[in-house]
């Protein structure tokens, strides 16, 4: 399954000419970082959900963000995708300052995300969900013409559905899917088009052990140029699919390092492995 997915992603060149030009420009500029946050702070009223976050992630790097509930992990994702703009600080995506871009502009530049609680389109079929994801990062979003027999995006969507093992239910409405299937669809939506960087928000939540194994396979076999940040409570999953870890606590970065360092760090164990997490 995962092999197939990789094949599809590798086969699928970026569809949007605008994105091509971005890629070209970047190859000229020589982007040092896929994602670069500088001093990002997010306030909700008087409450600081994020305080002075500075993170740099290299292209292709895979990183886990750990932290107890309320540490600000999902808020961090929301700031990166633009769902909530940061109150201060800057966010650069492959060298480009996207701090004030609306979410869709960031997505069109190759950023993707999944949601902790599946954010799908319950009234539409699985196939249509994925088709929308493919359409969102290509042209013709406003097309009044139905896709024809040989519609490239339709095929891309079908391949993606197949890759996440949902071919059998592709014409069912999403509202009727089981939880595990919805989580898989959630991932498929984030891999449509030509992703360059993906934010996975607790993709393993509520999955069975078998489904977890499949998830790990998907993540580890993503093409090397696709980097990601993953929020995951399950250390077994998290530490097997990343090469670096950022620990968050109370909206701040608490520790950064390699998985082994973090796992054996006494402070981290005190705070997270011992206390918040059981």
């Amino acid at each position: 399954m995962a092999g197939k997915l990789v094949e599809n992603l590798a086969k699928d060149p970026p569809k949007d000419p605008a994105m091509d030009s971005v890629a070209q420009r970047l190859s000229v500029v020589g982007a040092g970082a896929a994602l670069e946050l500088r001093g990002v702070t997010r306030l909700f009223g008087a409450l600081a959900a994020l305080t002075d976050i500075t993170i740099t992630v290299r292209p292709g790097e895979r990183r886990a963000v750990l932290g107890s509930n309320g540490a600000g992990k999902t808020t961090l994702f929301n700031c990166i995708t633009g769902d909530f703009p940061p109150s201060s600080g800057t966010i650069r995506f492959f060298g480009e300052d996207v701090t004030h871009f609306p979410p869709y502009e960031r997505i069109r530049r190759g950023l993707r995300r999944t949601y902790q609680i599946s954010a799908l389109f319950p009234g539409l079929t699985v196939q249509d969900n994925v088709y929308l994801a493919c359409r969102g990062v290509s042209r013709g979003r406003f097309s009044f013409l139905r896709p024809g027999q040989n519609d490239a995006l339709m095929h891309a969507a079908e391949n993606l559905v197949q890759a996440v093992h949902l071919s059998g239910v592709k014409d069912q409405r999403v509202a009727e899917l089981a939880h595990g299937q919805q989580r898989q669809l959630e991932i498929a939506l984030a891999l449509a088009g030509a992703p360059r960087f993906v934010l996975f928000d607790e993709p393993a939540a509520g999955l069975s052990p078998t489904e977890r194994a499949e998830l790990i396979e998907i993540l580890t076999s993503l093409p090397a140029h696709i980097g990601y940040i993953i929020i995951e409570h399950d250390m077994d999953v998290a530490l097997r699919v990343v090469e670096s870890v950022t620990m968050m606590h109370n909206g701040r970065i608490f520790k950064e390092g390699r998985p082994q360092e973090i796992e054996s760090d006494p402070e981290v164990q005190e705070l997270y492995l011992g206390g918040g997490h059981e």
Partner: peptide, 20 residues
Amino acid sequence: PFGLALQGVRDNPRRMAALG
């Protein structure tokens, strides 16, 4: 595509933005 996207907007506008 336009109609499907509209139904997507109805079901979950935030996700639609996160799809581009």
